[in-house]
Structure formats: structure tokens, C-alpha cells
Amino acid sequence: MAKISKRSNRSLRKIIIIISILFFISITINIIIYLKTNSYKNNYNNMIEQLNSITSSKEEKEKEYQKVSERLDLVNNIDERTNEVKKDFFTKAKQLEDKIIAGESNEKIVYITFDDGPYYLTYQFLEILDEYDVFATFFTIGDNKDVCYDNRSEDCSGMYALEASKGHTMANHTYSHGIWKGLYDSPESFMYQVKLQENLIKDRTGIKTNIVRFPGGAATAGGYKNRIIELLRENGYGWINWTASIGDGGNLRDHNVGWSNFVNNISANIEVLLQHDYNRVTLRILPDEIKYLKEHGYHIFPLFYESNMVNK
């Protein structure tokens, strides 16, 4: 009995030792894990703070990214974007015209147009249009397509592209403008000069014109007028005369006369103002004209094919 009890005592002691060791190990692990957990817990706030600050700087970066990628998208597709805005403008300008014509709007529109260019003086017209933030319409011809007619030592060949690059409407006034030189000999001779000018403008600017102004006005075509209009329509063209003029097509030298012509001519709710970009009087009074028009509530728009003023 004593032997058995001694043996069992020994094995109990062994068990006690093993359990004690296990217990201490468990306690140690517990302590380690507890401390580790606590260190995570204590660090938690720091980490959150770090995360918050990184998140907010990330958000700022995202905004910058958005801005830059939008700007890049714009500059990479600048032609497309410009055309979208332009198209929307023309659609709305047409709607505005419709409302004005129907008497549903008190707004007023003027289309400033310049005939017979380009000339060396055109540079200065373009500068004024830039300065006053105005788009105009240029009914160009081709006769003086290279050397500037009003300054033989200067090159005017880039003027078409310059006008177009500034967003002005490029329109067709026939290549030769030869009222007394065969332009109106037949409908075909007229169309030939329209096509010549169309090709020149296409070549210099990449733009296909679709608005024609008859040199001297549509009446100058006499009996051929209707046939020419038919041919124009077949070739995708509309045509336009003018509703107001300052009489600068001839020898207008006195700016007071020009100014009073201008003021006396502007009255309708939609005006198509005929001027010439070779005339110094016109150049001189142009800033005052623009101011006057704006003060009198006119929107100064560039011409477009869909306009009610463009006959089709």
C-alpha cells in the first residue's frame, strides 16, 4: 500500500509540475498577448489620425487630378469641345431669333459683317474685335489673296487662317468680286467664282463656306438672281444681303458721316450690318459702334448658316 501510495504521490507531483508549467506558460502567453493587444489599442488613435491626414491629402490630390485631367481632356480635344459649344450657341441663337421674330422676346441681335477683305488693315480690325470680345463675319474675296492690296510690301496670305483661328465666321463673297468683269455674265460664271473662293478658303483654313453675299447685293445679279439662288442651294449655300450699312463701300473719308450713317441705320431688332475692312473710317468708329450696340441692348453675334437672316 505504502509503495502504491508513494508511486501515485510521485506521479501526482509530476502532474502538478506539468500543470504548473503549463499554467505559467499560459499566463506568460496571456500577458504577452494582452500587452500586444494593448499596444495595438494604444496605437489605434495614432493610426486613425495618420489615416485621416493621408485621406484628406489624398482627397486634395484627387481634386487636383480631376482638375488637371479635365483640363487635359479639354486641351486634347479642344477642337471638338469648341465645336460642341459653337453648335449649342448656333442652336440657341436661332431659337432667340425665332422668338424675336415672333415678338416673344425683346432681345436684339446684330451681325457685324466685313466685305471684300482681306486687307493689311484687317489686322487692326481683328485686334479691335479681340479687345471688345466680339465675333464677326468676314465675306472674303480671293483677288488679293497673297500680297496685301493696301500695302504691297506686306503678305496677307495668312489672313484667312488668322480670321478663322480667332473664331470669326468665314463667308464667301466670290473670288473675283468682278461685278463689271464677268461675274454676272451667267449663273455659271457666278457659281464658278463662288467655288474658286470656296476652294481658296478651304485650302487656307480648312473651313467649307456655306454663306454667300452677292457682290453689290443680290439685286445686282438681275435676271439671273433666281437661278443663282437655286444653284447656291444645290451647293449647300445660303445667301444674305444686309439690313444696315454705314456707306463705307466707296469713298467714305469723314468719320462723322460714317457715325451718323451707322446710328441712323441701326434700329431693327435683328440687324445685319455691312461694313468693309479696308476702310479707315470704319476702323476708327468700330470701337464706338460696338459700345453703342452693347449699350442699346444688342447681342453681337457671328453669322451662321441656320440663321433666319441667311436665305436658303
Binding site: 479642344i78 469641345r81 450657341f89 432667340l96 470680345d133 465675333f135 483661328s165 480667332k166 447681342h299
Partner: peptide, 18 residues
């Protein structure tokens, strides 16, 4: 020119709404 068209677009939009 793009920005100028934007201004024109705004002008005509406002004129239409009047």
C-alpha cells in the same frame, strides 16, 4: 477662342431665358 465661345454660349442662354 474656346473661352470666348463659352461666353457667347452663356450670353445667348441667358438671353433666351429672359
Amino acid at each position: 477662342v474656346y473661352e470666348k465661345w463659352l461666353r457667347y454660349q452663356k450670353e445667348v442662354t441667358e438671353a433666351l431665358e429672359k
